[in-house]
Design a protein around this nucleic acid. Structure first.
Lengths: 343, 343
DNA sequence: GTTAGCACTCACCTCTTTCGAGTGCTAACA
DNA sequence: TGTTAGCACTCGAAAGAGGTGAGTGCTAAC
């Protein structure tokens, strides 16, 4: 059977109505809701067809219809094909930019949650192929050295190193020159055991300290194995009864306490080819997280300048307001882009 | 009326039984549960007395009794007076200590949550009266300087400063000496406008850079106005039906999304004189957070060596297993203490 | 192809009944 | 005087019984 124009309009009306009310939609409602001027009986016939096609379904015999996952999919695909929405001024939200990335991300998550009334998540940008830009050790006091490591993108790492012996200024200078000449500009794959041994040998009696510093440096440019993810608005789930009948709420919220489930969403999003819009929609069972099978997840990748890519996600009921969510995410992307360009 | 020995035993039995079952406790249950060898009728008489004293109450006429807030209080006070429990090996949990304080705290919160089956929170230690220990600027590249600031307790702060002009090594050295001689060991209240002006003047044409560095330093040693608080196990609430009937769950979980409510608990705990045990118990309406009026909150202060004090809290139903929670918290305190001493 | 009409279904609400755990009170007992 | 057995009573929870209404599928007529 084919999804002709009239069926499409009816499906659209069913989805839209269900998004608003959360209740199954009956034929009479559609008959009035659309301007097709068809009686409820005709609509019923069409609905029977749509059901046969797997686009809508009945929760029970004498109830109206609700969209199936596949029905949502048709609706969402249609929407994604739609013209670009104009970029609004979400930027302003971020303009009093926090100096720390962490705070910026938390702010984004919160803003989105408040804006959309859904739960949100954002992953810190994953830094790949990092190179050392600057490395230095300083004497904090007699027993402690401070290793400062700057990597591309001006990300800074520090490590305190405890030393037995007191180092004089000349030695410090020598070690610093050694570190910078030998390690500057290296990526993680360049730092191999051979190099480490060579540098250590050059350092002579201070090889242990140098070993510590190199370890710290290597650790810094290795991608964080535990991806930082911030969430917000998880209590918004309680606004949608279909997600919060007892056990479900618990299960759903649990996935937000631990990053492991969320990071599977991040991975999925980053690995998928998602065209120029950068938006991806997972409906029901399409989500990588089992506990979210009654939800929809809309994700977007964002990029902070030099190749640091992260993922923003909005998680809500399947009957989420896709239109709004998608345009909100687009705005956020643009805002983050602009924000970084100003630097 | 006086709380004689027999009444105390009965009260104890009622509380204990209620903690386990979550159901109102009847006289017959107590008659069997205790080894007083009293009939249910006698127990009923005693229970009537206890109710009159405000220690227990009936949810409705023909139900058993549940402890009132005051009843819990008697029970808990008795328990706090009890002998010190032996310190168990929670330490081991923390032994693979994360280098970052943040990760350690998250780990503590999680461990406690898993251990107790309640929600937990932990505040990052509040650092008071900070002094600068070490301050330095380094040239990352021609346009960027890196200011590194170490404050007491070996907490490290960094700030990237963008400069117009390229600074030569001699200038860098000069500025560094200036910074360290003038600012070393200063507390926040020592850094006043007069000092800043004096140092800036000494810096000559580079006063702007110095100004930036001093700003960064001042910011670093000022106590974080937004207290960091980590939580875990919030979904444990769902294990206690009395806390999760619909609206309550949402309200309760909301308080965990925002730190403002939680920080009032931290403040309360830190400001209270809580004796040598360092443990504090808030029952029902005693908690500083209205949304937790059906909960009990058990807090402990911990100290990481040099005066850095923070607060751990466990939030659960009023019928929480006080015995276990209190001893678990004590263990955690000891573990944290020991952990720091090893440094 | 569209529509009106009609019998049918079934979740949901309300009202009633039943059930049982638990109580308070009284009278008897040690 | 303290303890106990017995009994009538209370009231929430669970189970059952109608009633209601939104919505359906089917059929026959337009």
């Amino acid at each position: 059977m084919e999804l002709d124009e009239r069926k499409r309009i009816i499906l659209h009306a069913i989805v839209k109505n269900y998004l608003e009310t959360g209740e199954p939609v009956g034929s009479r409602t559609i008959s009035k809701y659309t301007d097709l001027n068809l009686s409820s009986a005709t609509i019923r016939n069409e609905m029977a067809d749509l059901e046969e096609m797997g686009l809508i379904l009945q929760p029970h015999t004498s109830a109206g219809r609700i969209p199936s996952d596949q029905g949502y999919r048709v609706y969402v695909d249609e929407m994604l094909r739609d013209k670009e929405k104009e970029v609004e001024n979400m930027k302003e939200m971020l303009l009093d930019k926090e100096e720390k990335l962490e705070n910026l991300l938390k702010q984004v998550a919160k803003t989105l949650a408040v804006d959309t009334n859904y739960a949100t998540m954002i992953s810190a940008p994953q830094i790949r192929k990092n190179k050392l830009k600057f490395i230095q050790i300083s004497k904090v006091d007699d027993e402690h050295l401070l290793a400062t490591i700057v990597i591309e993108g001006n990300v800074i790492k520090n490590k305190i190193i405890t030393v037995e012996e007191v180092l004089d200024d000349a030695t410090m200078l020598k070690l610093n020159i050694l570190l910078n000449t030998r390690l500057d500009g290296l990526a993680v794959e360049d730092i191999n055991l051979g190099l480490i041994a060579a540098v250590k040998q050059e350092a002579g009696i201070h090889s242990e300290i140098i070993g510590n510093v190199i370890d710290a440096a290597a650790e810094s440019i290795t991608a964080d194995e535990d991806l930082q993810i911030y969430t917000s608005g998880t209590t918004n789930f309680f606004k949608y009864p279909e997600l919060t009948d007892n056990a479900k709420a618990s299960e759903l919220l649990s996935t937000f306490e631990d990053t492991s489930d969320l990071s599977s969403i991040v991975e999925n999003t980053l690995s998928a080819e998602n065209g120029e819009t950068g938006i991806q929609v997972y409906i029901g069972n399409e989500t990588p997280v089992q506990a979210m099978k009654d939800c929809s997840v809309v994700t977007a990748t964002y990029e902070l300048g030099d190749g640091m890519k992260g993922t923003v996600g909005i998680i809500g009921p399947k009957r989420m307001d896709y239109d709004k969510v998608i345009s909100t995410l687009k705005n956020m992307r643009h805002a983050l882009d602009d924000l970084y360009k100003k630097e």
